[in-house]
């Protein structure tokens, strides 16, 4: 048992080194897009509020709108930064064979690598938030909400990991899985409140979205960080349910895929 933990620990360490080896790449790929997107949204909303930053648009003045986007940036960093690109590569390049020989499972390896990534992202988001607080861009919520927000967002990251893992597994059949990931990114970015608060969306769309996991991915956690949580158990229940469904599907896909792989030698 403890030996197995050692394997996990060593994998986490190796992944950490891999992520940090190409620092510039990591920054441009993972951190940069989030920062640039925030920069655009900050400028856009400043232009929209124009001369009148105190006016209320669906309950938001400029300051609370900016606060919303700052927390949306943090939620994105912690919640959905990870993409299992190297997993697709493992499968497509046939490197999966080595996992079939190792006494350490494919999913264990990639989950450990995900954990390593999360440590890194937590660190980066911590630094980001510290800077933003220091320059008075945003106020830190109470310890309770901060702690709760981080915890909930980590829960969401599990959901995203399940989805990313699924996209990775589809490499058994698909030549390019990045399309799936981008597609997921576009759809959820739009429906989860990442682009801007769901309060601005037409009512019919918002009430429809209540029955999907989307609002619980970005809009809800942002609200926690902003100290205005809606009933939380819905979020945990909804996302938890989807994680279980996703993990089950992943298990089935893996079984099918590995059969295909070993049978055909790909």
């Amino acid at each position: 048992m403890s030996l197995n933990l050692l394997k996990w620990w060593q994998t986490i360490k190796v992944s950490w080194v891999k992520y940090t080896a190409y620092r510039l790449n990591f920054f441009l790929q993972i951190v940069g897009p989030v920062l640039v997107f925030f920069f655009i949204k900050y400028n856009l909303w400043s232009a929209i509020y124009g001369e009148n930053p105190e006016q209320m648009i669906q309950g938001y003045n400029l300051k609370s709108m900016v606060t919303y986007h700052i927390w949306s940036m943090i939620v994105t960093m912690i919640g959905q930064g990870h993409a299992s690109y190297n997993m697709s590569e493992d499968i497509r390049m046939g490197r999966i064979s080595s996992y079939l020989i190792y006494p350490f499972n494919f999913w264990e390896f990639h989950t450990a690598s995900f954990l390593s990534f999360q440590f890194l992202q937590l660190f980066i988001s911590g630094v980001t938030i510290a800077i933003l607080v220091a320059f008075n861009f945003v106020e830190l919520p109470s310890t309770y909400f901060l702690f709760h927000g981080v915890l909930y967002t980590l829960f969401i990251s599990l959901f995203w990991f399940t989805l990313q893992y699924m996209a990775g597994l589809l490499s058994f059949w698909l030549e390019e899985t990045w399309i799936l990931r981008v597609l997921m990114g576009i759809v959820t970015g739009f429906l989860s409140g990442y682009l801007f608060p769901l309060d601005l969306y037409p009512d019919w769309l918002v009430s429809l979205l209540q029955y999907t996991p989307f609002p619980y991915l970005t809009y809800y956690p942002i609200k926690i960080f902003m100290g205005q949580p809606s009933p939380l158990w819905i979020g945990y229940a909804m996302i938890g349910l989807w994680i279980i469904i996703g993990a089950t599907i992943n298990h089935l896909i893996w079984k099918k895929g590995i059969k295909l792989y070993t049978a055909a030698g790909m």
Binding site: Y22, L24, N25, F26, F27, L28, Q29, G32
Partner: peptide
């Protein structure tokens, strides 16, 4: 750069 993928994100 050895790993230029990040440039595409830029």
């Amino acid at each position: 750069l050895t790993e230029g993928t990040g440039i595409n994100f830029l």
